[in-house]
Amino acid sequence: MAEPVMEVVARPPESMEDVPLHYCPGCTHGIIHRLVAEVIDELGIREKTIGVASVGCSVLNYNYFKTDFQQAAHGRAPAVATGIKRVHPDKIVFTYQGDGDLASIGTAEIVHAAMRGEKITVIFVNNAVYGMTSGQMAPTTLVGQKTTTSPRGRSVEGQGYPIRMSEMLATLQTPAYIARVAVTDPGKVHRAKLAIRKAFRTQLEGKAFSLVEIISTCPVNWGMTPNEAIAWANQNMLAYYPLGEIKVPPEVS
């Protein structure tokens, strides 16, 4: 009998290291990492890309991407990326930040990097909770959502309504591209990739600041199975965080 011919039908992107990820079962960081890596591959920019890791569950993501990386202090990734990009304006610089990092401790840095129009791309993963520290309330936590620091559910009285970072940043005149996507079903994953590609292309074309907010899940800290978490996100998060392109420069296609 002849040897069976093995054909490669799927493989990790070139820009990703072939190592196991440390993320919890059902976590969507893995999908998002892959989307970013595929885009880097497709644009052929791996050797000129420098990533900035933030503090949160994705703190170790410099181990997963096959690009140069700097690990940043909590919330400061946009400032670190600013420093890198200004030194190497010909390189592609992206940050990868969670909602605690970007929407809480790092609000000043993200707002001002966006205002200055730093030519960087921000991957903003919003799962409405602090994951790494095991499930505390985030500024993006939905009203009524129970977390370890909002055990009775987030209340408007005292904790306010969650922050819509993309809409807020879109009030600034300088940013070029801001979109919100989700990775909670295959169609949305596909559209998320298109947005990520557009954001990187915005930077490649030398246009100002681009950001993609990605609605994600955290089954472990939400106390759900992965499927329940997907359903919960689709039903509740998307109701508060509508998907779509919020700011698009006419020239970027």
């Binding site: 900035v52 940043a72 202090a73 670190v80 420093g83 200004r86 000043a108 840095e109 001002h112």
Partner: peptide, 21 residues
């Protein structure tokens, strides 16, 4: 490059990025 940063916190992190680069 000259940048007037939004704070000293951002400043030092810009240095971390640029120095690392």
């Amino acid at each position: 490059v000259f940048i007037q940063a939004e704070s000293e916190v951002a400043t030092v992190n810009m240095l971390y990025g640029a120095g690392g680069a």
